[in-house]
Simulated scan of single mutants.
Amino acid sequence: MTSSDTAVQAPDYGFSHDLRVVKVVLQRDIFRFLHDVGRAVSMLFQGVMMLFVIGVGFGSLVPSAPGGADLTTVMFPGVITMVVIGTAMSSAASIVSDREFGFLREMLAAPARRIAIALGKVLAGALLATFQGCLILAMAGFAGIPYAPSLLLTLVGMMFLVALTTSALGVLIATAVKSIEAFMGVSQIAVMPLVLLSGALFPVGNLPAFLGAVTLVNPVTYAVDPMRQAVFAHVETTPETEALFNPGITWFSWQVPWTLEVAMVGGAGLVFLVLAVARFRRAEH
């Protein structure tokens, strides 16, 4: 018997095995989310508060033009984006808690490639965040937005893209921190300023020059703007209201097309996903 016959062969996990691992990780995170009713309800409640309390309250200070959209309509795409980003980041926090309780080490010791586990985590966060966003989307009629099938499909597609990008970013952050407190702190510092300075909660048409420059380099801006353009394409407004509430994004007087904005968000998501998978494979858990 030769040494090659007695050598222990390293397990060769095929594509079908990786898919099963992704499915198991995905199912576990979904069941975990469904059993954590408080987290789901709190995220939904925050979105409703943003949309109907802040939107109606501040909307009374900014009355809509005749035949135009009110502030609740303007805020709707931004509120969806905030809920999606918040849920995706919260889902990624499960990696940190799993590490603290030792469950992540058991997962990594299982016969599964780390890349499959990381992809399962990213996909779970994206699907859960999209589901939460759809709950807000169901309230579109209360914000004066029609339930047009083309609009709903566009918004759901954008929600999933934003959720996938944010979930990959969350997994990347989760592999670099050691405690849930550190993760929440880093995620708040990384995400909240970007959301607040993206025009999610207010129109960016009349911002001061320095804030306008910040919105141009803010990646979340390019997630909110295509959704807002899709909404305004299905809402009857005056040209004045359109110019104020939906000015679009311009680079040196060039109007950035929404297709390029979507491509930029998708490209950022791909970069975060590659970095998250690479970091997850190298990290010691």
Rank of each mutant, 00 (worst) to 15 (best):
His234Arg: 10
Leu137Glu: 12
Val48Glu: 12
Val53Ile: 14
Pro203Ser: 13
Leu127Lys: 00
Thr81Lys: 05
Ala268Tyr: 13
Leu201Tyr: 03
Ala88Trp: 06
Phe131Arg: 01
Met75Thr: 00
His285Met: 14
Thr215Lys: 01
Val156Thr: 15
Phe52Asp: 09
Gln229Arg: 15
Ser3Met: 13
Asn246Gly: 07
Asp18Thr: 03
Gly205Pro: 03
Leu128Trp: 11
Thr165Gln: 14
Ala92Asp: 02
Ile117Asn: 00
Ala140His: 06
Pro226Cys: 00
Val8Arg: 09
Val37Trp: 15
Val171His: 05
Leu197His: 05
Gly248Asn: 12
Met50Tyr: 12
Leu169Ala: 07
Leu137Arg: 13
Leu151Trp: 14
Ala174Asn: 04
Leu44Asp: 10
Ser3Asp: 13
Gly141Ala: 14
Ser64Glu: 15
Gly78Trp: 01
Ala283Tyr: 01
Val162Trp: 14
Ala40Tyr: 14
Thr238His: 10
Pro66Val: 05
Gly47Lys: 07
Phe103Cys: 07
Ala143Pro: 10
Thr237Trp: 14
Pro226Arg: 02
Leu216Thr: 12
Val22Asn: 10
Phe131Cys: 02
Lys23Gly: 06
Gly59Asn: 08
Met158His: 15
Ala126Glu: 08
Leu201Ile: 07
Val74Leu: 13
Met264Ile: 02
Thr81Ile: 02
Leu196Ser: 06
Leu155Thr: 00
Ala126Ile: 03
Leu26Thr: 03
Ser167Lys: 09
